[in-house]
Amino acid sequence: MANRESLDIFGASSMGYAVIESNHLESWRSLFQDGIGLHLACDDEQAVAFRMDSHQRRIIVQRGRQEDFIAVGWQLRDQETLTEVLLRLKRLGIQAENSDPSEAAQRGVKEFWRIVGPKGMAVELFWEPLITDEPLTMLNAGFITGIAGMGHLAITSRKPQQMRRFWQEIFDARDSDHIVERIAGLTLDIDFLRVNERHHSIAIARLRDLPMDPVRTRIQHMNLLTISAGALTDAFLRCRKLGFEMAHEIGEHPNDREQSFYVMTPCGFEVELGWNALVVDEAQWQTTSYQGISLWGHRPEKTGTWRKLTTNLGNFGRGVRSLLKPEYSPL
């Protein structure tokens, strides 16, 4: 048996659930149930929750004022992996707090351990999800989950190196590739990290030579994968018919070859729904750098001059305001 110092947990973790706080529960229900096409698992005055597979909960939107993505549930393979992660956290001086039963039940897990991660986002560690065999009732034909998890997060940061350390030193994340994107005269560097066969579970974006963060929320987007081009197109048409703004219409990324669209959420971050993302073969994979985030498509729905001006001014204003407060990093 490998000793603890050399234990590699690559492939033993994945994104397990998402927790969002918002006072716009009705809009969230419309987006996820009627637009993206998830199964509505809970609907009351304080929260709405959704399924996409046998897990009792995958996305929870709880009532509150933050209007933000507040926690990601990070699933570990087994108790041994959890023990290893907790030991790493202790060595790094990061405190982990055990959940109470009501919190765990809300998230659809037996228990979890919470740490405060980069940008103040809670990372909730668990290994025993609550499973149900209740049939799914949803508009989408299905989602890709399994050992690679439910999706990925993209996060903007003024401390990208510390954020990379967090995912690499705690979860043995590996570099998948890098993209350089030019937006409104600025250069954006994006690093893609994987913790399993999914091309990336975390993407970290930073403005080159500018210590600003133009995104108000803790994440820039959350990604889910559906099972076919037809399911993707149907969800795109449903979201647009419901009146949700398309941040980026259907297009294809050069690195993971995923075809996807991005829809604006009631909190202001985006949800990306995609399909056909490649699965990494560790024996063959080589890290590559790309110019441009899209091979084709991914055009914004609103492209007028006034829209571009107000968007750029808004991003610049948020970037300037970000200079007035420190970005939290646990490392």
Rank of each mutant, 00 (worst) to 15 (best):
E26D: 15
V263N: 03
L136V: 07
G314N: 06
G185F: 05
G304L: 02
V271I: 15
R63W: 12
I293D: 08
A154G: 12
R321D: 06
W275P: 04
I179C: 03
L210Y: 09
I155M: 15
V280N: 04
D100L: 07
T310W: 06
G317R: 13
Y328D: 04
R321Y: 06
F50T: 08
I94N: 04
T83C: 08
I115N: 04
E21V: 03
E249F: 02
M138Y: 05
E5A: 12
I20P: 03
R158V: 10
S99Q: 02
T156C: 13
R63C: 11
W28N: 05
Q46R: 13
D234N: 11
G292L: 02
E270R: 08
Q259E: 14
F269E: 10
T233M: 12
G314R: 02
Q106G: 11
W74H: 12
D43C: 04
N255T: 04
E252F: 00
S260N: 12
E327M: 04
W74L: 08
T83G: 03
L40V: 03
M222F: 12
G93P: 13
I179Y: 01
A122K: 08
E103S: 14
T265I: 01
L323D: 03
Q168D: 01
D78V: 09
V215Q: 11
G292M: 01
K110E: 15
R318E: 11
K119R: 15
K241W: 07
R114C: 03
P214W: 05
D281M: 05
M264Q: 09
R238L: 07
T226A: 03
D175N: 11
M52N: 05
R238G: 06
Y328N: 09
W113C: 00
T145S: 15
R158N: 10
E21G: 06
E245V: 14
G11L: 04
F112Q: 04
R299C: 07
K302G: 07
Q46V: 01
M121D: 02
L323A: 07
A154P: 00
M163V: 06
L313W: 09
T187M: 12
E134G: 01
I250H: 00
R165Q: 15
L232C: 09
T233H: 13
G304H: 11
E84M: 07
